[in-house]
Design a protein around this nucleic acid. Sequence first.
RNA 1: UGGCCUAUGGUGUAACUGGCAACACGUCUGAUUUUGGUUCAGAAGAGUCUAGGUUCGAGCCCUAGUAGGCCAACCA
Length: 677
Amino acid sequence: MSEEKKSLNFLEHIIEEDLANGLPKNDLRFRFPPEPNGYLHIGHTKAIGISFGLGEKYNAPVNLRFDDTNPAKEEQEYVDAIKRDVSWLGYTWANELYSSDYFQQLYDWAVLLIKEGKAYVDSQSSEAMAEQKGTPTVPGVDGPYRNRSIEENLDLFQRMKNGEFNEGAHVLRAKIDMAHTNMLMRDPIMYRILKKHHHRTGDTWCIYPMYDWTHGESDYIEQISHSLCSLEFKPHRELYNWFKESVYPYSQEELPLLPKQREFARLNLSYTVMSKRKLLKLVQEGIVKGWDDPRMPTISGLRRRGYTPAAIRDFIERVGVAKRDNVIDVSLLEFCIREDLNKTAPRVMAVLDPIKLVIENYPSDQVEWLEAENNQEDESAGFRKVPFSKELYIEKDDFKEEANSKYFRLTLGKEVRLKNAYIIKGESVVKDANGNITEIRCSYDPESLSGSGTEASLRKVKGTLHWVSIKHAVKAEVREYDRLFMHEAPDTDEEKDFMEFLNPDSLKVIEAFVEPSLTEAQTGDRFQFQRLGYFNVDDDSTADSLVFNKTVGLRDNWAKQTKPAEPKPQTQQKPQQNKRPAIEVIKQLGKKYTNYPADKQEKVKEEIKMLAKEVSYEDLQPLFGTAAKKVGTRIATAIALGVLLEQGLEKHDDILEFIEKAQEDTNDILVAETANL
RNA sequence: UGGCCUAUGGUGUAACUGGCAACACGUCUGAUUUUGGUUCAGAAGAGUCUAGGUUCGAGCCCUAGUAGGCCAACCA
């Protein structure tokens, strides 16, 4: 009875392999190590989901460890926000820990490293050190303090710790190799003097350890088995290993397990940015109202926007884990939240862009409280009452004086159903002096009440409209959001700053009318405004002035048909394809050539001819040797060759040979293309 | 002119130690529907960056290219 096995991602493969090679399952331990210098965003959720997800999968502890080694940037406010966000997502950490808890241990180990000659105090300016460090292509050179005596190093380091020196006077460096191809191995700094107050250790320390030294050893101290981080830390792995192996002999009795760092590609989401620095800029420049602005990709922003933890976790699951750079389409995130909310959100009626509808044959003073189902996807959701009367608001978009048969909504002379109420027929319109419609007049069929079971009520009409009784309508502010940036990957453009792609219309504030039941709604409550989308009650909402956020719209096939004009944003052009040499493109086009239908082949052929004009004989020549079975490539070569010959290329022997072989081929196209060369 | 990493439909991820490329989103049909939603049925779309090699057989292995990413903070 094997449940179909879910395929593993590469991290799970690594763990399975370690387990198979004898790592006890009980030794599995993970960690999520945020620096408390900003708010968590959806990108972090991936890292959280990976490590906490693995913890859940293998029933292993996951530590929440604050990587707080830089007192200049870190604050308690961020610690609190991070804890709140991780909890909100529904994860439970085994221990709440701080790198700063290990400062003493780190210091003790550093002293031992100095004694072994593996670390030294450097007393140069940062500029001088940077110069000696070299560049990726130029090896570094040793600095003048590199070979200080162990005694001097010990003395200096001790005095650094005691606060005898000013910031910048000295640093402690690991002594590795200034000419190493990995720049991180060129005697990396382990400690710097920082006379700053730390949010946890106060003024106890005036030297603070750097990331590489701290992070790996914190993993080691916590006996983390798999330390998972994003790809940009790949080069750090070598140093991570150097440090941990250097320290291992000191503590192998108490700390037998050496952690293993592995790296995955971080998440990018289309039409937004995903770096704390850039998000902070949006906050500081007032582009958004704060870290929790519903347009922000922060966890707190998504939460305020109405996203659910379940939807976000589902999203992370679907996104997968691998090692290549990626840009996830927001439509996947939207799919996840719709899927969750569709099952759980109560339906209500709200009109965002109202126009008055008068039912001429409905008694002026009559009010009916009609039965409305709260959620047809959830039987337990029950029913509520909505008031109906002679004068209603409907959506402006839901009426046209005349329209073709594809338009299912209200027109003059046609019937539609009012959701939960009656079938109506458009009769006439009232216009102002400028010809704008100010009022729609209709008649209703008193026999057609929803759910009454009468023959009239069962009549099929093509459209159903939502509405709200004017007399009973409640005013509410609705905030509609659009993407923050116009560019799919705003921070990848080489010339333009990401701020240049800001969408000026990312927020639209609307005065809407909602059904009266919504006066009961509490902050955070989520609803489906029928036919419109999902909305939640914003933090700014009060009892007498409701504020809603639009979480996400419903899928809308009608809108797609109406304006297919929206040009597919050009941004999907792969930058690589733009810069690719013509010959490369020709090869690619050729490869698929034989699969294309005839008309497409014509097009591709023209394209190849265009490209061939940029190709030299030297480019093309190697393709003459293309394997016989790769017919497409040979066809493309033939087409391109034709262009070159036309331009006066001489027929070398290898060209003749190529043509000769092609003529003998069984593929008609190839034969035809080479026939008149 | 250096080192490291990556390359599979529009997007993202699969394909157990080589066996004629799967799933999801998106797109497009059709059915159902008192939400142009949901649900259901179906379709299109990749010969796996290129070339060569090993093999009976390569997305997986080897070689050489090409393209993209990361690396020069007393940040993490």
